[in-house]
Nucleic acid binder design. Structure first.
Lengths: 303, 303
DNA sequence: TCCAGATGTACTCATCCAGAGTATAAGGAG
DNA sequence: CTCCTTATACTCTGGATGAGTACATCTGGA
């Protein structure tokens, strides 16, 4: 590393996938070992890129094509697994986020889908502010003690003291809880109250995926990768709500959707689930929208 | 991979850093081998995380602390290096983006700083639309031929046919040029016109860093990591302009800065570089802002 | 049959912010 | 003293966003 010299290390490498679907207005992730682990697999394959290899594998597992696949993060800290195996070989995992269409049945094979709020119950604010949050902030407050910096972080991340709840901060919330000893730790009983645990750092990887997806749906039309071919606007809204863990304002949501011209009517109507039948829509992909959309802008001078 | 089984592969791994500084209103990257390569180094170290190991190394190389360090992407395609070494071992590199304070002298040692627009001359739109763009779009148009999809991509990425130039798409532009054979390729002479080449896929990695940084400065106050302790508002603006490759509207830029309350006056004035002396400001970091800022919002229902 | 409840759809209104332009203040150079 | 450059403070306008209201159209049950 000094100077020009390249000295490459050998590493133990694999892929880990956060595979998301939304069924019955509930976001779900594909898991193994009765919900304890995220699917992971070997690094080597005949494919040119990791991405295409992973894509193939997922399709063979779920029977559905992967609509969207994105590299999340590469996890390589020394203490990822509880007992680090001896020797200088570091274990690294490249995490991916994948979106698949809604599944009718969870599949007959090994992989199972679990609602992601089982792992992060405090992240679901659709009905009400979840009750667990009180226990959590209690614990965090005593962890913070007199440390002003810690207090500020807690307030900011968990929407205390008049600060708003920000759904994008899921990862940072989990990391803070981990730091404060509320997540994975030796003392089992108290833990179950704060969401279902997973092996190793899989829960952190899942949190990374959730945070990324929540941020992404705001400026990139990826939600449609989770929708069936035709859907009602409410169905679409419920899906976004499921992912973000928030309730949205219906008229405004509709206005946004149609002024972005992302969907078009199929001409059919839904066979009502209760009230008045709704128009069915389909996604209208465009090259332009597919790549980038809106987002905050710099105050560019035009001329 | 089938079922629960984990099968990990061994891989050849290293780190690659895109280290950015802004000097004299020019964004620069740290390079080795006379500007041909990005600095890269071994994977293994005694540090718990890659991040902290890399941080140490950079500080030893530049003599300055790294203000901001972020994982960029993990590059692992089979054809990264021209002649793939035989055997099943895939070469992977974890790319990082680092920001360091402005350098007075480029350093006496091996590493050199090069303006990043040497590598991407078509990305600098501060003075005028760069002239190279004409040659590029000519070549791309003939590459697209009658293919409507290709045409649309070219128009969108390069701001043709009335579409606006979008500075964030630097990576996608480079990838399109690569796909069309305008970037790295056997035929040297024509290439030099389209920016200085680098070894392997280093130029792509650099493009990734540029694109990420350009996107980031819009919703996260990372520019300040590139600024000296005190600075004028115009200096700050010039730095943002250097990174984004755009000219900004001065009054609006100032308005944005002060309504975000990111800076405070030091009380001193600049010893004028020409016109009226300007107030000096310093960055005012806050926990709140440090973590997340503004950004597009979902139409949340509040009550 | 008709009403209650649920859903779908179309408006209005106020506020805020971003893009754009203009005007004035305060220094240096000739 | 005048011109040039930079700094700083306003104004104006349009569009997007948050919030609320009104009305349409179905199902199911009293």
């Amino acid at each position: 590393m000094t100077g020009v010299q390249l000295r490459a290390g050998l590493a133990n490498a694999d892929l880990i996938a956060v595979l998301v679907a939304v069924t019955d207005n509930e976001p779900r992730v594909m898991t193994l070992r009765a919900g304890e682990a995220l699917p992971s697999g070997p690094f080597e394959s005949q494919h040119r890129s990791l991405q295409s290899g992973l894509r193939d594998w997922i399709e063979s597992q779920t029977g559905h094509p992967v609509g969207y696949l994105e590299q999340l993060y590469t996890f390589a800290d020394r203490d990822r697994e509880a007992p680090t195996e001896a020797g200088g070989v570091r274990r690294i995992s490249i995490g991916y986020l994948g979106l698949v269409r809604e599944q009718v049945t969870p599949g007959t094979g090994q992989p199972q889908w679990h609602g992601w709020y089982e792992y992060f119950p405090w992240e679901d604010h659709r009905d009400r502010r979840p009750l667990v949050l009180d226990s959590i902030t209690d614990r965090l407050d005593s962890w913070a003690g007199a440390d002003a910096l810690r207090r500020e972080r807690v307030d900011f991340l968990f929407g205390q003291n008049g600060l708003p709840w920000n759904e994008d901060l899921a990862l940072q919330r989990y990391e803070l809880m981990y730091e404060a000893g509320l997540a994975e730790s030796p003392s089992r009983p108290a833990i179950e109250r704060f969401g279902r645990p997973m092996t190793g750092d899989h829960r952190r990887i899942l949190a990374t995926g959730i945070a990324r997806l929540r941020a992404k749906i705001k400026y990139h039309p990826v939600v449609f990768e989770l929708m069936p071919d035709s859907f009602t606007l409410l169905h679409l809204q419920r899906t976004v709500e499921a992912l973000s863990g928030l309730r949205l304002h219906k008229p405004n949501f509709r206005r946004q959707i149609d002024q972005q011209e992302l969907v078009e009517e199929t001409g059919e109507m839904s066979s009502g689930t209760g009230g008045r039948p709704a128009k069915l829509y389909r996604y209208r992909p465009t090259v332009l929208q597919a790549q980038a959309l809106a987002g905050p802008r710099l105050p560019v001078s035009r001329h």
